[in-house]
């Protein structure tokens, strides 16, 4: 009898309290857009990959609507020299141009496709940056664990500059690199900040002066089959000087936090009539142990 009452109460509760139904999506009709992945690396061949958006509602299977169904027409213009370049299609998604990205040059891209609005964007390639000084140290936190510290310095120039820093461990056995998490960092004599897998920096604190970046991370090791710690791996740090568009894009992406109570994030784009980013970067790599 008790179970009958319990079932009745639960049923009543479900009927009264939790009424769920499917409703029609009545958002503004949004046209599918071209998504541009175009971060041009200084002195490298200019390559751009394209994908397209897919509607949030309706059919959703793997890969659906993510790729162009026919080739797009891309025109790249070097605004500094006035030259224009036509693209070579490597696949429906990848396009390259017969030129390399030059520092301080401004570039515009124009992408047309019969199924989508014509997308366009402009950027410039930043000058390279040289690492002036660096050192590393290892601090034993306890008998079982240690942390590694890397100090890195470079000279910032007078204009507004943007950077991001990535740290990898290099596995020579499997010939691969692993992105490491930088758990804290500080600039010059400032306070320690919470880190991330990719530090995104603006030169507010060191404009036109020396930047001394100090990062802390957990060392990475080789292990044997029984997970016994062997030698420490070597490392690679990449300092990217990026255009404002790339900085804004990665800054907004870094805020994304998938969770039921997380605030929504509007991802930055500089693509007119499209999404993604068209920007430039100039990278400097340092290997250390």
């Amino acid at each position: 009898m008790k179970n009958v009452y319990f079932t009745l109460i639960i049923s009543l509760f479900v009927i009264l309290i939790s009424c769920e139904k499917e409703i029609e999506f009545k958002g503004d009709s949004v046209q599918d857009l071209i998504v541009v992945n175009g971060v041009l690396e200084k002195d490298s061949v200019i390559q751009i990959s394209l994908s397209v958006t897919k509607p949030s509602m309706g059919p959703d299977y793997f890969g659906q609507n993510q790729y162009l169904k026919s080739p797009a027409n891309l025109i790249l213009t070097d605004n500094t020299t006035g030259e224009t370049f036509m693209s070579t299609m490597n696949s429906l998604s990848y396009y390259s141009f017969g030129t390399t990205a030059k520092s301080d040059h401004s570039y515009s891209i124009n992408i047309s496709h019969p199924d989508y609005l014509t997308a366009s964007a402009t950027t410039s390639i930043p000058q390279g940056v040289s690492i002036i000084d660096w050192d590393t140290s290892t601090i034993n936190v306890s008998d079982y664990s240690s942390e590694k510290k890397l100090n890195l310095s470079w000279m910032d120039t007078g204009e507004e500059n943007f950077y991001f820093v990535e740290l990898f461990s290099i596995d020579t056995v499997y010939n691969q690199k692993n992105l490491l998490y930088i758990y804290s960092y500080k600039i010059n004599e400032g306070t320690m900040n919470d880190g991330s897998s990719m530090l995104i920096l603006k030169d507010d604190l060191f404009n036109n002066s020396l930047c001394q970046l100090s990062i802390k991370f957990n060392p990475d090791y080789y292990y044997d089959q029984n997970w016994v710690k062997l030698d420490e791996k070597s490392y690679k740090v990449v300092l990217h000087k990026v255009s404002k568009e790339v900085y804004n894009y990665y800054k907004s992406v870094s805020k994304i936090n998938i969770g039921p109570f997380s605030e929504p994030v509007k991802v930055y784009t500089n693509i007119l009539n499209g999404l993604g980013v068209f920007g430039g970067k100039s990278s400097t790599t340092l290997f250390f142990e």
Binding site: L33, N37, S254
Partner: peptide
């Protein structure tokens, strides 16, 4: 409420930062 989704730009490691 988003009306569409898209792929993020990957970083050097082949994935985007998140």
């Amino acid at each position: 409420l988003a009306s569409q989704s898209f792929q993020l730009v990957p970083n050097e490691n082949g994935f985007n930062s998140q």
